[in-house]
């Protein structure tokens, strides 16, 4: 086993990121985030009979749903062909003939895509952040920055899942199918199953089970981080009394999100070896 080297990881990461910037992927994603974020932040309170920016917490609450639907989808589409695409194009054999390890290649790919996703997400949500800061001051900006950081974390978690898919899948088409299934599973189906479980077995389930199961889904972990990160929102959602104190800790929820970045990536590295 050869020692891990950082230089090839950085080289591959730089190339991947530059590729996404040059083919305008990053620009397109940042534009989508900007348009949706502005629209939702401005019209999010329309049901309550008003438009325009309200408090930072309400703006964040409005944007959480957008992020849960959009960011995982974009992250999965970004990374699903990271490895299987190279294999199909024939460039994987060429890369592996160079003095680099498979782990270095995989981590370089992930780092480059992660950087592109982070840039697109941060830039995409930045205009709303500037507006919030101008209207409500620095505290609002700090809250909003926390939300954007958690959105980046959610993106990286799904990017990690997509890289695992790209390692496991035999073809690009298969990988895209698996990515779509993952999106449906985590974003749409998981909560329905959890709800059904709750309805069917609520009296017999220990109180920690459902909150723990929520953390076992990166999309729900993201939602919980943002709900429990702000006292007003926790009260607003009425979850503070339902979720046990141990799992209501935003640090635990953030740790769950970080685990969702590290575990699939670790599995992908192990599998790709």
């Amino acid at each position: 086993m050869s020692a891990f080297e950082l230089r090839p990881v950085m080289t591959i990461a730089a190339k991947e990121c530059r590729d996404r910037i040059r083919n305008r992927w990053a620009l397109a994603v940042a534009s989508v985030f900007t348009v949706f974020a502005l629209a939702i932040a401005y019209f999010g309170a329309a049901q309550q009979g008003s438009v325009g920016l309200r408090s930072a917490d309400v703006t964040i609450a409005s944007l959480v749903s957008l992020v849960i639907y959009l960011v995982p989808l974009i992250a999965l589409m970004l990374g699903y062909d990271a490895i299987v695409g190279e294999r199909e194009r024939g460039s994987l054999a060429l890369l592996m003939s160079l003095p680099i390890t498979r782990s270095e290649l995989l981590l370089g790919k992930f780092a480059g895509l992660a950087l592109a996703l982070t840039l697109a997400t941060t830039i995409g949500f930045s205009i709303v952040g500037v507006l919030l800061a101008m209207r409500f001051g620095a505290v609002a900006l700090v809250h909003y920055a926390g939300f954007v950081a958690s959105a980046v974390g959610l993106g990286l978690a799904f990017l990690s899942i997509s890289v695992l898919i790209s390692v496991v899948a035999a073809t690009r088409i298969g990988a895209s199918g698996m990515a779509i299934v993952a999106w449906f599973g985590f974003v749409l189906v998981y909560d329905l199953v959890l709800l059904a479980l709750l309805v069917a077995f609520s009296s017999r389930l220990p109180s920690t089970v459902v909150p723990a199961l929520l953390l076992a889904n990166p999309a729900d972990a993201f939602r919980m981080v943002n709900i429990f990160g702000f006292a007003d929102m926790a009260r607003f959602y009425g979850l503070a009394t339902v979720v046990p104190r141990s799992l209501a800790n935003p640090q635990v929820q953030a740790a769950a999100l970080v685990a969702w970045i590290l575990v699939p990536l670790g599995l992908a590295t192990w599998r790709f070896r």
Binding site: R18, D19, N23, S91, A93, L94, S97
Partner: peptide, 14 residues
């Protein structure tokens, strides 16, 4: 070692 594979599409944006 230098290796030239038979069919490889390189990176189109570079």
């Amino acid at each position: 070692v230098g290796y030239m594979p038979e069919t490889t599409s390189l990176y189109p944006n570079l």
